[in-house]
Design a protein around this nucleic acid. Sequence first.
DNA 1: TTATATTTTTACTATTAGTTTAAATAGTAG
DNA 2: CTACTATTTAAACTAATAGTAAAAATATAA
Lengths: 198, 198
Amino acid sequence: MASFREQKIAKKKQEILRSAAAVLAEKGYHGTTMEEIAAQLLMTKGSMYYYFKNKDDILYHCHQMIMELSLEKIEEVVNSDDNPIEKLESAIKAHILLSISEKSMFMIMDRPYQKFTDEQLKEVLDARRNYAHYFDKIIKEGMEKQVFENVDPKMVRMIILGAINYIQQWYNQNGPNTDEEIADSYATNLLKMVVKKK
Amino acid sequence: MASFREQKIAKKKQEILRSAAAVLAEKGYHGTTMEEIAAQLLMTKGSMYYYFKNKDDILYHCHQMIMELSLEKIEEVVNSDDNPIEKLESAIKAHILLSISEKSMFMIMDRPYQKFTDEQLKEVLDARRNYAHYFDKIIKEGMEKQVFENVDPKMVRMIILGAINYIQQWYNQNGPNTDEEIADSYATNLLKMVVKKK
DNA sequence: TTATATTTTTACTATTAGTTTAAATAGTAG
DNA sequence: CTACTATTTAAACTAATAGTAAAAATATAA
């Protein structure tokens, strides 16, 4: 039974993670103090240790949260009945929209090997490999079904992931383009790399 | 007269920057101590302060160094007599090859606003705007000369820069592809986004 | 060789941050 | 109201580090 109390704690943890991600994204991992994380929630840093083991642990759970969300989305796309062109387009757009709406979380996910060791690092890298693999799967499917040109799936995947993850670096809430426009433009342009011309 | 002594100091500074970049790239800015930077050079941290004002200053000069190199390269490309297709190809390849050969330097250039303030931040951002501008120039030239499709130059530039800067994240000296193969593959695929098909 | 300038090391300071602990407060069931 | 539990706080502890300054070592030149 997920008791009332357990639910309450889970909710509080989520709150802490969201708030922490915002500070961590702005100041960087080592640049952020536990006090800052706590202050933003009107708590004291001691309280943080009631909910999380330590600073690493907070970052790790941020990773977990966003990796789960990302994997869910792409699995849905991969398992759909769409053709590879539509799948690749959906995968790109979904990733972009998620990375914009969860900008802070995505921003703190760089260089995991600088922040984690052992078990945690393994988990993170596995999840990423997994995610990348789904992209490869779509690209290969497109090639098999002759709707994509013959390309090196790994290279194309790296180009796509690099391009879409870079958006966090320049995205601005008040910029001239809506999120959808950005997602559309990226998808359209990136698809031109692989889709066969008649 | 750039005296003998001044040259010696300049050389030593370069040595420190290169070595520092390697440590900074591996451990991150806040994760690297002045002592570690010094130790790798078989020096003590006191000496570091003889050559550089402080830790920021070291990072800043790393930035300067690589930005100068990058700008030189792209200016050369932009001012050449090549057609826009060749220019874009050269710009992409040059950036990739430089970012691989100077991997550490490039890796420490992320999130400048987390590391610099005021004057230094301004310098860094200006140089980047400048660099980005050259890409836009090539893209616009290609559109004017009707060899590129009609695209949003900013979006295409962001896609390209994101893709090529991501290489540092996965590049491995001992990987299956040579640097040239990577550069070729990236250039070929990225150009497909813009080059008009007959 | 001696005097001077440059470079490096050593020792120190002050600060800061992550974590732990014990005490205080709030909440709840009987 | 009471006793117990859960949560939060504040203080204390530890370890680490950026930066400084003066002394020591080394190189240079007269």
